[in-house]
Write a protein that binds this DNA or RNA. Structure first.
Lengths: 331, 331
DNA sequence: TCCATTTGTTGGAGCGCTCTAATGCTGTAA
DNA sequence: TTACAGCATTAGAGCGCTCCAACAAATGGA
């Protein structure tokens, strides 16, 4: 398993190590003849450059560190996909690890990523304190995804949750709904803007808001609906798709038809919402775009093209499926 | 952003670089006094070791490369989670990239991973030709997850698809079903054992098999059911959960009740199956365990504890929910 | 013709670390 | 006292590469 080095290739091709280095980096200032000889020797030896030695010597890194707070969440998978696409396009590699939504574990993960001296760091919805993020940002460019920050040294990419929920409310209002409840996501950093957006949208239509405490799970959605049974609204805007599916399930159990009796809107447009069995009207976030923008923000900093922080606030969009309809006019 | 080096720490602590190195590696042969001084200096400078320089000098790597064929698939997310758990437990870091289910892209991804000279490589359901895998295995230990191989140099971790489907068939037979159809997954490497398992299980019960061509999507499941309409079996074993949900949807559209008229069993026990709205009887694979075993297989090879290939075949288990019931006895 | 460029190639230093062998230093036995 | 462990510490080489300065050879005016 002793792998050939540049020296071996150089010896075989009858040139110097420096020349091999130039060929490997695709330098134009190498004669075609020598280039061919080097490439041939490399091929024969099965040589491939040693990324770590390269980055040590060049004092540059072609690695982007990514900390994913929770790999199980399909949301992040798509963000990583976007990151990966842009990164590989520019010859960068991704080092990924997970924080498991615990500050202590995230701090360790952060340290481990930094030990690779990455060109940049993307933190996906981290729960670690701002101070730690600031410290990391002193060492390498940092971009935060799905978490806002006022740190002047870090870039952020978020979705405009207020606008997303407003889209949902506007849609329901345009169908004729007036009694629209919001199943709230609770603590999470993404719940607050959604709640704000709901309240603002209701106010702008002159409607009375009704916020019901809930969580990001289908069980919580079902529970919240059961609490509504005595006085059911004609429409429900959930904090996310899972919550919405739980709500629908409880509604059907209680004898309500969706969407005839009650309309339901989710949030996130997960693959779940797209299933024909579910066919949920929901709000789509450009998740892949999150990743792309995050990677681009890092690369801009790496190339020194920008020093001021950038704050991306992406526009969500409404996806109408089969869980929303005009309300039944009470006689 | 010029980060301190070992030399800086040594100077500040008034010792040699070699001593700092010993402290950083937790060597016992350092006096407590000096150790404290070094640690203090490191702390004050905000020093953390340079992982790449370290691995270059020591000619060892604490990195495991992971190629995920498709990050969108929640299946792999959980496998990675298992890998990550074992890896960090042993002080290893993960470098992850994706192949996008294209041989060309996977080959590039493989090359990029190998350029880090990882201690080992985990390939999750790769589509790249066996020859490429063998070549990678010449350079570093390789473990294949969700793909089998006869290569003597690689380890494999797979689920026992034959047994899993047999579990489903046995369950249905014990409920009294005799007309049980299988919605087949088609080409994929994981479909074949499931089909074999179905045929074997049906034969062992003396029942007539009925394999219907389908795919791993809900649309395909729905389509397959529509093809069955003239002559509906009393139970369906799908190739995976998505397919099963599509099947259920089409059954309900056609006026069949699930499970009263037709029972349906999925495969994979995705989070989808667990939703109360779906509540699908399905076959669970120990996904996290896949990752753990894969990581352990690599670490064994890294430590030179084993040279012969290991073939893990994990036992799936039946999860009974609400989509299976005894058939209605035709009068 | 000569000198100045340009072009292609190379030796050598050095990136931040580990590792081996050698060093100085104690304490203990002869 | 000398000799010799045994231990903590260090100098120095080297991991595989990049980069710079230097250089030889080819080119182009003047």
């Amino acid at each position: 398993m002793a792998r050939p080095t540049m020296e071996d290739v150089a010896a075989r091709a009858g040139v110097s190590r420096a020349l091999v280095s130039l060929v490997m980096r695709g330098s134009p200032k190498v004669s075609d003849q020598r280039r061919a000889a080097v490439l041939k020797a490399a091929e024969e030896l099965g040589y491939s450059p040693h990324a770590m030695a390269r980055s040590l010597a060049s004092r540059t890194s072609h690695v982007l560190g990514v900390m994913v707070s929770d790999l199980h969440n399909a949301f992040f998978a798509e963000v990583v996909d976007g990151l990966d696409a842009v990164a590989t396009e520019h010859g960068f590699d991704l080092i990924i690890n997970t924080g498991g939504r615990s500050p202590a574990r995230e701090r360790r993960a952060l340290r481990s990523l930094l030990s690779f001296r990455p060109a940049g760091l993307a933190l996906l919805s981290p729960v670690v304190p701002t101070a730690d993020i600031g410290r990391a940002a002193d060492q390498t460019p940092v971009v935060l995804v799905a978490r806002s920050s006022r740190l002047a040294t870090v870039d952020t990419v978020n979705d405009d949750g207020e606008r997303g929920i407003a889209l949902a409310v506007d849609h329901l209002v345009s169908l004729g709904h007036e009694r629209i409840a919001h199943l709230d996501g609770g603590e999470g950093s993404r719940a607050a803007p959604r709640r704000r957006g709901y309240l603002a949208a209701m106010a702008s239509h002159g409607l009375t808001p009704r916020v019901v405490a809930s969580e990001y799970t289908d069980a919580a959605g079902a529970r919240a609906v059961r609490g509504l049974l005595g006085d059911m609204p004609t429409a429900i805007v959930s904090c996310n798709d899972f919550n919405a599916v739980g709500a629908i399930s409880a509604l059907e159990d209680a004898g309500f038809r969706v969407p005839q009796d009650v309309s339901v809107v989710g949030y996130d447009n997960t693959s779940l919402a797209a299933l024909r069995h579910v066919s949920l009207t929901t709000i789509d976030q450009p998740r892949n775009e999150f990743g792309r923008l995050a990677a681009e923000a890092l690369l801009q900093r790496v190339r020194g093209e920008r020093a001021e922080p950038v704050r991306h606030l992406l526009h969500p969009s409404l996806v109408v499926r089969s869980t929303t309809a005009p309300p039944i006019r009470s006689a």
